[in-house]
Simulated assay, not measured.
Amino acid sequence: MIIDSHQHFWNYEPKKHEWIDDDMAAIRQDFLPSNLKKVYSENGIDGCVAVQADQTLIETDFLLDLSKQYDFIKGIVGWVDLRGDNIDAVLDNYNQFNKIKGFRHIVQGEPDHNFLLRPHFLRGIKALEKHNFTYDILIFPHQLGAALEFVRHFPNQKFVIDHIAKPYIKDGFFDGWATLMKEIAKQENVYCKISGMITEADYKSWTEGQLHLYMDLVLNAFGTNRIMYGSDWPVCLVAGTYSQVKNLVTNFIANLSVSEQESIMGTNAIQFYNL
């Protein structure tokens, strides 16, 4: 079974989606399950995890409603205000919905480099652990140091790093990112999504070989049991097709055993998110 561990849906609104800049104009439109179902049929994908793209409870409820209509949406990573005083009550409410597996905050957009380590946020993560929800870590490489300290606070919380922590592939940034990724991978409760790579490279001139260096590091650091395939659809469409994204990963892991390939392409996501 192939599970896409990371994709998004939205009804495009210029103000809400102002992060979609002129270079990404191709995705200034609606992207909904009806669009993705066709893509999955063409690429042999069995199900997905829908991840929040907007930091509101309305977004979480939007994804929840879609998951009730489309069975191929196997899980949801929503958003809640983890710093809120009412976090336990909010999580209690979402506990009743089986499709909601975890939550994410867009930490990459926070100007505070140590945002992850602030007391109110740590309190929210502690509440996630109590309710058995996962947490997706969305950061840039300069935030990896704080992320390392962050995950050490919660050895029993299930974490996954989105988009291999978004190394600056276009600029050839590697060594500093690699050092910290190896350290964070030593925490056995931390997984990593091999996703979002082609949009960190040059949109028009990236090559599979260029990205293998980064995937190699992640594979060796996390092992085959703690990495999972994700497309980052529809964001990936600014730099390539869905098939290119899938083939990038399947070509890279082609020399692994069948069971290892199955783990990366589906089983790990199923186990991590309890799909």
Rank of each mutant, 00 (worst) to 15 (best):
L248A: 06
N225I: 00
H153P: 00
A50Q: 05
F222L: 00
D92R: 13
I45T: 13
G145Y: 12
V249P: 02
E13N: 15
V245C: 11
P119L: 05
G223Q: 09
Q187H: 14
F62Y: 14
I253T: 05
M181G: 08
F252V: 06
E13T: 11
Y273P: 03
E183M: 14
I184P: 01
H163F: 07
L128T: 04
A147V: 12
I2N: 07
I264E: 02
S5G: 09
K15S: 14
T267M: 00
Y40C: 11
A165D: 06
A25M: 08
I73Q: 09
C236E: 11
Y242P: 05
W177Q: 09
N11Y: 12
H8R: 11
R123N: 15
F154C: 12
Q143P: 02
Y135N: 06
V160D: 05
H8S: 10
D171S: 14
F9K: 03
H113I: 13
T250C: 03
L116W: 11
W177E: 05
L144A: 12
V249N: 03
V190T: 10
T60R: 08
E42R: 12
S195E: 02
K182I: 02
I76R: 03
M228G: 04
K74L: 14
L91V: 06
G102E: 07
F97V: 05
I27Y: 09
C236V: 14
F31P: 06
D46P: 01
P33I: 06
Y203S: 02
L275P: 01
S195K: 08
Y203W: 12
V218G: 04
F72A: 03
A146C: 11
F103L: 11
P234D: 10
Y94L: 05
A127L: 12
K16Q: 15
D85E: 14
Q96L: 09
I161T: 05
S205M: 05
A147E: 05
L91R: 10
G84I: 01
Q55D: 13
L66E: 12
H113T: 11
R83G: 05
F31W: 14
L275Q: 01
S257I: 00
L256R: 10
I137V: 15
G240M: 06
K99G: 00
S5Y: 06
Y40V: 12
D46F: 05
L275I: 15
K130Y: 14
V235N: 10
K38F: 01
V151F: 11
F62P: 01
A147Q: 00
F140W: 13
S5F: 07
M197T: 10
R118G: 00
N43T: 09
K126A: 15
Y214F: 14
T224D: 10
L82I: 08
Y273A: 06
Y214E: 03
F72I: 00
L57M: 12
N274S: 13
L122H: 11
V39M: 13
L116F: 07
K193V: 08
W206V: 11
H163K: 09
Q271P: 00
E18V: 12
W10D: 09
P141R: 12
C192E: 08
L248Y: 04
T250D: 04
Q261P: 00
N220F: 00
A146L: 10
H131A: 13
D21P: 01
Y40K: 09
L91K: 13
A50W: 04
D162M: 06
N43G: 11
